[in-house]
Each structure stands twice: as structure tokens, then as C-alpha cells.
Computed example of a mutant assay.
Amino acid sequence: MVSASKTPLIAAILCVAIRVAILGWTRQRLRVVGWAATAAVLAFPLLQQLKLSADTSSILNEAEAGYPAIVQPVMPIIRRFDLFSAVTDATLFGPGGWMSAEEFWRRSIGGLIPQPLLLAEKIGVGTMWSVEIRSASLGTANSEVSLAEGFIAEGYALNGYIGVVLGATFMAIAALLVSNLISSYRPFLASLGMLLVSYPVLFERGIIGTVEVLGKSVQVAALMWLIYMMVSSVSTARLRVQNSKQLALPTSTIRGKSKSD
């Protein structure tokens, strides 16, 4: 969380928020969530500062000095709006020039296939965005950084404003499906829904990224389902043994008394 990614912390907070929403909102819970959100906003610049070197911090401080004083305290948060940066990248790259329809389907389907089954190395959409789109605005490509593209920037880079509409429609349907998965009583479906929320796919990915995360989540959800079945079978077996012992105890006691009489 401090040195690499805040996703684990955000995922935990989201899971708690979903749990509270299922139980129902009360004034006390709203008050707790409000204080927690305030603390998170205040702690954000401190966490971000720990990731930056002294030279980078000084450069950013000089850049922030050019903004109004009322905006400067929130600049660390504004800089972390990855989707705003992604839209800027897509605008500089131009509409509809990222990849062909054939390449789009090839990459999307490839995201569903596990890495061991692929003949070539799987490259995440975040890395592809960094190399192929962000390089248009920075002038250099960094293959070691995975960036969030979002459906707006992705759709614009793929097919202009029509791509944005298609991406928004896809993500709306995905959000409805995930909400139904979370409320499912089936372990596999519920695990799949929680994984899709824990990975920030609904908040910072587009079509390709959503399909890519779906492929990973299906594999993990299957593993969680197997673990659940193993634990459930062991628990059921122990419960049967305990019930059989409890049912056998009165019978043996009665028989013992009849023999002594």
C-alpha cells in the first residue's frame, strides 16, 4: 500500500461498504463512513509522498506553486485521477486510431485465456496503454508501468465518441451483472462478484481490461469454490459424527440401566 499500490486498501474499504449497504444504512454508520472518508482524504497526500523521491517531490512542489493556494492542498489527489490523465492521453493520440476491430477482438479473447495456455506472453491492457497511448503525450514509452485507461479514454482511442458510448453501455451492463453476482447465494458466483469489485475493474478499466480481469477472476473464484467445498465437506462430516454420538448416547445409557436392573 505504501510503496506500490493502494488497491488492497481500497478493496478492503469497498468490501466493508458493500457489507454495510447490505445490512442497511443508519445514522451511526453514515457518521463512521463520513469520518473514515475524511481521514482517507487527509492521509492520501502523506501516503503519496512516501512513494516519491526527494527530487520528484521538489519538482512537483515547484509545479504546484503555480496553482492557486486553495487548489494546492488537493493537487496530490488530482494528480492521482488516472482516468483524467487517460482522457488527456487519448485526446492527444486521436480518435479511432488505436487498433483495428480484429486486433481488439484478438486481445479481448486473449485476456480470457490463462497464461499457461497461450503461446505468447500475455501483456496487460494497462501496459499496452502505457506503451502505445501514453507515449503519444509523453514522447517516451515505459513498459514497466501499468496505467488505468477507463472506458471513456479507451472508447475514444478505439472509435471516437461512438467507442465511448459502446464502452459506457458495456460497463453499465457489467456493473449490473456484478451487483447480481455479489448478492448470489452460490459460492462461485459470489466469489466472482467480490473479486470483480476487489479488482478496481468497474472504476478504472474499459472493455479489454474488464474481460482481462474477468479471466483472472474466474480462475481464482474456481479455486475459492474448491476450497469452500473441501471445508464444507469436512464440516459436514464432523457434524454427522457429533450428531451420531449424541443420538447413540441415550440409547446406551438406557440399555446399561436395564441390564443392571
Rank of each mutant, 00 (worst) to 15 (best):
195 L>T: 05
241 V>G: 00
217 S>C: 15
151 F>W: 04
201 V>H: 02
246 Q>N: 07
148 A>Q: 08
92 L>C: 07
60 L>C: 01
148 A>I: 04
110 G>K: 04
150 G>K: 04
195 L>G: 05
118 L>S: 13
163 G>A: 04
33 V>S: 07
34 G>F: 07
196 L>R: 07
103 E>G: 08
166 L>C: 14
24 G>Y: 07
95 P>L: 02
121 E>N: 12
246 Q>Y: 02
77 I>F: 09
73 P>T: 10
177 L>Y: 08
91 T>Y: 13
203 F>Y: 09
16 V>C: 13
59 I>F: 06
158 L>V: 09
22 I>R: 13
230 M>L: 11
219 Q>V: 14
75 M>A: 09
231 V>T: 05
48 Q>C: 05
46 L>E: 01
195 L>P: 11
170 F>E: 04
10 I>D: 01
208 I>H: 06
101 A>S: 11
159 N>Q: 08
189 L>C: 07
58 S>R: 13
258 S>E: 09
31 R>W: 09
195 L>Q: 08
235 S>R: 02
229 M>D: 08
229 M>I: 11
79 R>E: 06
79 R>Y: 14
1 M>G: 15
207 I>H: 09
141 A>G: 01
208 I>F: 04
70 I>A: 12
172 A>E: 01
32 V>D: 03
138 L>N: 14
215 G>Q: 10
160 G>D: 01
182 I>W: 00
58 S>L: 14
45 P>Q: 09
101 A>Q: 01
153 A>N: 05
80 R>Q: 13
135 S>M: 06
87 V>T: 11
43 A>I: 11
104 F>W: 10
153 A>P: 09
155 G>C: 00
256 G>E: 11
85 S>A: 13
50 L>M: 15
223 L>K: 01
107 R>T: 08
141 A>C: 05
167 G>L: 10
192 L>Y: 04
186 R>K: 10
232 S>P: 04
221 A>H: 04
137 S>T: 14
49 Q>A: 15
138 L>E: 12
5 S>G: 01
78 I>Q: 08
117 L>Q: 09
121 E>P: 02
81 F>K: 00
187 P>F: 13
209 G>V: 11
111 G>D: 06
229 M>L: 15
57 S>P: 00
164 V>N: 01
221 A>Y: 06
193 G>C: 04
167 G>S: 08
107 R>G: 02
111 G>E: 10
67 Y>I: 06
88 T>V: 14
48 Q>T: 10
57 S>D: 05
246 Q>I: 13
103 E>F: 00
20 V>Y: 03
1 M>E: 11
247 L>Y: 09
200 P>S: 06
20 V>E: 06
73 P>V: 09
176 L>N: 10
48 Q>A: 14
21 A>G: 03
154 E>A: 12
92 L>V: 15
238 R>A: 03
